[in-house]
Design a protein around this nucleic acid. Structure first.
Lengths: 195, 195
DNA sequence: TGTACATCAGTGAACGCGCGTTCACTGATGTAC
DNA sequence: TGTACATCAGTGAACGCGCGTTCACTGATGTAC
């Protein structure tokens, strides 16, 4: 058995991570397989040793965020999934709706960079997207103080504010208005999880 | 001067309106010029009599919403721009975050259907998108009771909830979760403009 | 320990298709007389 | 009022390029002996 399974897995992971970043930058359709493979230090043809189609790569790239880049991101924000405390909902929102996240094209959450692309993608990709949102809502809901009778409603709304605020801010050409939207969504999301 | 200017203008408007709908359904890149022209009852080649590039059409399609489909939409919701009253912020939110709007693929607001596409489009298209948001925020802000000291913040947040809630709901494969997000965003947006 | 071998990750040329754009043309229509 | 003409909206064939995918191959590496 030439080439260890670990080697194969490492190459595959490298392709997925490269793709995640390029999709974040340019969107699904504006990234070519050639580009991904070259950026990953490989050549075009090898792609199909690892993935069936370009769409399959997209699905993996979206899905990889939760435990990949997203995990680093939670760590930086001081969020410990195995030990959620009420204040972590606020920390989550602070991090998600931060100017840093707005400026971090490569590392951003796929829900911000790719919603339209996912809406038109295959069911696997949409399922990966849904998992991302479900995880976010779960985290917010679990962290919100149990005294709040509208926990679920507030968690869902905070998630909508997080994604909506960032999507709008990303799309606006005027950075002043973008910043205004981000800041307003931030303030209101904090109020929603901690009324 | 053969063919009246009105005829030319009518054809052009027909192309834009057809394109707006097709972009809403399939996204910018998944719609071909051939498709648009055929659907508008014309043939491929004529396109360039009216537009310089496909991107120019995109920009017009986004921009056409405000005074086109969006105007019908405001009328149905009972919103009169020349005579805004406090309760109209609520009517606006009721209409935007309604199950009907969620189901209306063809008629939906471009901010919901096309945010990722616009984020990667040319400056004209982004400017058209910004005009849409600016109009929405202006409407909400103007309608919100002047007693509210955080008018602008609340209007911006309500807009983020409107767009964010709908974008998420559109992208989710589970219609139950989609409906839950929509309803939560709706409730919280209403609270934001009318605390 | 060293070597022949089998495997399969990776290579790069080629294929085929779709689509944005161009272009020479056609023919419907308004105007001048 | 009727007709010849000029204009230009609309036609449809063709071009050219890019990209997803395929395929015959190469050569690095782990294993058997």
């Amino acid at each position: 058995m030439p080439y260890s399974a670990a080697h194969r897995e490492k190459t595959r992971a490298k392709i997925v991570e490269t793709a995640r970043i390029l999709f974040n930058r340019h969107g699904f359709q504006n990234v070519t397989i050639d580009q991904v493979m070259r950026e990953a230090g490989l050549t075009r043809g090898g792609f199909y040793n690892h993935f069936k189609t370009k769409e399959a790569l997209f699905s993996e790239a979206v899905s990889s965020f939760l435990m990949g880049r997203g995990a680093e991101w939670r760590e930086d924000a001081g969020i410990d999934l195995s030990n959620l405390k009420p204040e972590m909902a606020g920390q989550m929102i602070d991090a998600y709706l931060s100017p840093q996240h707005l400026g971090d094209i490569d590392g951003q959450c796929p829900m911000i960079a790719l919603p339209s692309d996912v809406a038109r993608a295959d069911p696997e990709t949409q399922a990966a997207f849904q998992k991302l949102l479900t995880a976010m809502v779960w985290l917010l809901e679990t962290a919100i103080s149990p005294e709040n009778a509208n926990r679920r409603n507030d968690a869902l709304s905070a998630a909508a504010l997080c994604v909506g605020g960032m999507v709008l801010a990303r799309t606006l050409p005027s950075s002043e208005l973008a910043e205004e939207v981000r800041a307003a969504a931030h303030r209101t999301a904090l109020k929603a999880v901690n009324p």
